Amino acid sequence: AGESLKYHATRTDQNGQSRAYFQGRLMQCRNCPKKHQCMQNPEAANHRKGKGRQVSFTLENKRLPNYTDWMKHRVDSQKGKEIYSHRMSVVEPVFGNIGTNKRLNRFSLRGRKKVQGQWQLYCLVHNIEKLANYGRLAA
């Protein structure tokens, strides 16, 4: 009927698409002669807790691919899956062990040389621990 709708919110629906929601004011819809054609439940405009006309639009995502999309594509490829499967056997458990078990969440020294020395001490302890636990030869 020529009335404007007020922007309400933008939310993601169950399909993962962004939707913009708009709503008419209740007083606009209450006296509108076209409310029976416009609203699914025109009686909602007649009581105090009702709502006016509600409309939502799907927002099209027309952005260009970024670096995150590029990396997702690389990791999801066959070669990427092969490389990614080796991560747990290479270096990540080392950082987990040093950060969690040895509780190194920040360095206590300042300066590049001192921090490098502290890091090398933690790595040395990690390697000695590996030798003590797993380095024994089977008899």
Rank of each mutant, 00 (worst) to 15 (best):
E92I: 02
R106W: 01
P65L: 03
P65C: 01
K114G: 00
S108P: 08
R106P: 01
T100L: 05
Y134F: 05
A1H: 10
R110W: 11
Y67T: 15
N133G: 12
R48Q: 08
M88V: 07
G135C: 03
K79D: 11
K6F: 14
N133C: 14
N66M: 04
G135Y: 00
F22E: 00
R30V: 05
A20R: 05
A1V: 12
Y122R: 05
M88I: 10
L26Q: 00
A1P: 12
E43N: 02
L137C: 13
D76T: 08
R106K: 11
D76P: 04
E129A: 10
K130S: 10
M39C: 04
W70C: 07
V90P: 06
R110V: 13
A1M: 14
W119G: 02
S77T: 04
L124A: 07
Q120Y: 10
R106E: 06
Q40T: 15
Q120E: 08
V91Y: 13
W70A: 08
G99M: 07
V90H: 06
A139I: 12
A9G: 03
T12G: 05
L109A: 15
R53W: 12
V91L: 09
G117R: 11
P42S: 06
Y84L: 10
L104A: 01
N15P: 01
V94E: 04
A44R: 07
D69Y: 10
G111F: 13
L131R: 09
L131W: 09
A139M: 12
L104F: 02
W119L: 09
L59F: 12
H126L: 02
S85V: 07
Q14F: 14
H86G: 09
G52S: 05
L131I: 12
V75K: 06
C38N: 04
N133K: 14
P65F: 00
A139S: 10
M88K: 11
G80T: 01
K49V: 05
L131F: 09
K51Y: 13
R19T: 01
V115T: 05
N127P: 02
R112F: 05
Y67K: 14
S85G: 08
H8K: 12
L104W: 04
F95K: 00
D76G: 12
G117A: 13
V125T: 05
N15C: 10
A132L: 15
G52E: 00
L59R: 08
N41K: 08
G52L: 02
C29E: 00
D76N: 14
T100Q: 04
S4E: 15
V125R: 01
N31F: 12
R74V: 12
W70R: 08
A9P: 01
S77K: 04
R30L: 07
L64D: 15
T68M: 15
N61L: 06
K51A: 12
N127Q: 04
L26V: 03
R112Q: 09
Y134M: 03
G135R: 01
S89Q: 14
N15M: 11
K34L: 15
S85E: 13
Q17N: 07
